[in-house]
Amino acid sequence: LTYASQRSAINSRPSLSVDELKREWPFLFMKKFLMQHFTSLTGIELYERLRECIAGKGRRVLQFFKTQLLRWTKEVKTVLADIERLQGENMDSTIAVILLMMTFFKEKDDAIFLLADRFHPDIKKWMLCVEGKVVIQSVNPQDDFTSALAVFFASFYIFNLEYQAEAASTLEFIQRFLVRINPENTK
């Protein structure tokens, strides 16, 4: 019901900071309502689309890289070896594909991911940071990496943010290949 008012607050000039928006629209900063806002904006059920896409294409992307091993840089080979090693250990294939693509595009993983506690890298909780501030935290232990990726990707569209230059290729890959948003005349 408040979608139109939220859009007009986000698009207002001079623009509000994300912090100010959060004060005005606290519900928009809860995962459920943020994802609903993205669906109203784009017509896409983002979490479902990412899950389907990774289930379908993820294994084929890994195959694409594995079958042409000699072509890749040392860094890509290292990531592929790590993925191979972790394959039996319930590895999240969304993480595998994103890290592999970041390495392939020669982008550093810290252009998207910051480990909050580097001594406990296995903790599965995540937070989303915008303009240097934490704006959403996962509260449900069921929230997987794909839900973090969905919230992260949705925030660019919802808050009119530009992709950061350090991760621009990976983000455009996510947009076109995984989410399948291909604006016309930009082939």
Binding site: R60, A168, S169, E172, F173
Partner: peptide, 19 residues
Amino acid sequence: LNSHVASFIKEFTNYDWLN
């Protein structure tokens, strides 16, 4: 469209189609 992304998608699509 970022040319790195475009060439990856093109190559992958060809590979995927052939395999």
